[in-house]
């Protein structure tokens, strides 16, 4: 599993020097139980199951602040996406379904919000 995450993300977690810049930059910190630097560490040490159980994989905003500011170009956001994909690609693990959408709509909501949610949260 660890290898799968590394392969599809293209991230080498060994590049991390554990400075905490990603976690310092993360705007979604309060919404996640594991924070970007922990993602990197847990992928390196093989704690993938815990990450897959974590709700934080759906709250990452994909804002790329961690990617931009990481001094070692580790790209934590790619790991988070890889873990999320590992979950979604299992059977019946879609985080969002078409049935959920109706109640979330409002008249001003741009199409982009729905498209992106489907792209991020289901397979």
């Amino acid at each position: 599993m660890m290898e799968t995450i590394r392969r599809i993300s293209g991230v080498n977690p060994r590049k991390c020097m554990k400075c905490g810049k990603c976690t310092a930059s993360c705007p979604a910190y309060d919404e996640m139980e594991f924070h970007p630097h922990q993602f990197v560490d847990m992928v390196e040490t093989g704690r993938i199951e815990e990450l897959m159980q974590s709700k934080g994989i759906y709250t990452c905003l994909s804002c790329f602040a961690c990617v931009e500011r990481c001094p070692r170009s580790v790209e934590p956001a790619k790991l988070i996406e890889a873990v999320r994909l590992a979950v979604l690609r299992q059977q019946n693990e879609n985080h969002l379904t078409a049935n959920d959408i109706a109640e979330k709509l409002d008249p001003e909501l741009p199409q982009q919000a729905i498209t992106s949610a489907f792209r991020k949260y289901r397979k």
Binding site: A28, E31, L61, C63, A113
Partner: peptide, 19 residues
């Protein structure tokens, strides 16, 4: 250049509001 939280507006409006 800080994220507005747009991607989570569907699931977590209060958080988007905070941002």
């Amino acid at each position: 250049n800080e994220c507005c939280g747009g991607y989570c507006t569907l699931e977590n409006k209060s958080y988007a509001t905070k941002q």
